[in-house]
Nucleic acid binder design. Structure first.
Length: 237
DNA sequence: AACCAGGACGTGA
DNA sequence: TCACGTCATGGT
């Protein structure tokens, strides 16, 4: 089977096994009245999500906070941020940096990430979501990569889930799964893995969103660095 | 009680 | 270019 065919087959297998994931998993959604509601992030069929700037912003913030960090730690940081009203551009820019760092403490690397979030907020103040959504993917990607704290994976998460531009996200699990399956080398560079996926698949936003989410779902179960629990087998061809 | 998690940056070779 | 050190909390 060609690598291209395997990429397709793996997706179908994962989708059949786990079902649609409905990513990005956002912790709180703001309704019209402005209050926050808990939300596990499962939005099957709602391909227009996210709708509002506050939701898009929270996705961007989450993408930064989750860098090399467990998602549960990010969730409590987001809840803490929401409590201080800092899930807004003004909130991020006006907060004292010590206060901002304290609010995101549970996500780890909190001093770095506090700086990164302010860089992100300044960027979004200059280029609104509305502007960014009108620009081509590569232009936005280059702009994002010029923000200190946004690397290739974070940029692609923002593109794919907040800006709804199809850009395949390559994370630790993506690399680990494919290299353990022998499809790619053991230390692949980001862009080559991204090109492999993007050249093997139809250029479809929802497909890219689901595929990455499924790889993370599967990776968490079976492709930890050090697997724990009773699950230690591969469901994937 | 080490080990690891949905990375990115700065540095030196 | 690229390998390596740094950043840090919370679950297992």
């Amino acid at each position: 089977m060609t690598p291209r065919k395997r990429i397709e087959t793996i997706y179908l297998t994962l989708l059949k096994t786990y079902g649609p994931q409905g990513w990005w998993p956002i912790s709180f959604r703001r309704d019209r009245s402005g209050k926050h509601e808990g939300d596990g992030g499962y939005h099957p069929g709602d391909y227009r999500y996210p709708h509002h700037d506050s939701q898009k912003l929270e996705i961007c913030i989450g993408a930064v906070l989750t860098q090399n960090t467990n998602w549960n730690n990010v969730l409590s940081a987001l809840a803490s941020l929401a409590g201080t009203g800092a899930i807004s551009l003004n909130g991020l820019l006006e907060a004292e940096k010590e206060q901002l760092a304290l609010a995101i403490k549970s996500a780890g690397y909190y001093n770095q990430k506090a700086r990164y979030l302010r860089n992100l907020a300044r960027f979004l103040q200059k280029y609104s979501f509305e502007k960014l959504e009108r620009l081509p993917r590569e232009s936005v990607r280059d702009l994002l990569l010029n923000v200190k704290g946004i690397g290739p994976e974070t940029a692609d998460c923002i593109l794919l889930y907040a800006l709804k531009k199809s850009s395949f996200v390559v994370d630790t699990y993506t690399k680990r799964i494919l290299s353990r399956l022998g499809i790619i080398s053991s230390n692949p560079d980001y862009d080559s893995v991204q090109r492999l996926f993007e050249s093997s698949l139809a250029n479809d936003l929802h497909l890219f969103q689901e595929y990455h989410a499924l790889l993370v779902r599967h990776g968490k179960k079976f492709y930890r660095k050090k697997p724990y629990g009773d699950q230690d087998r591969l469901l994937v061809p």
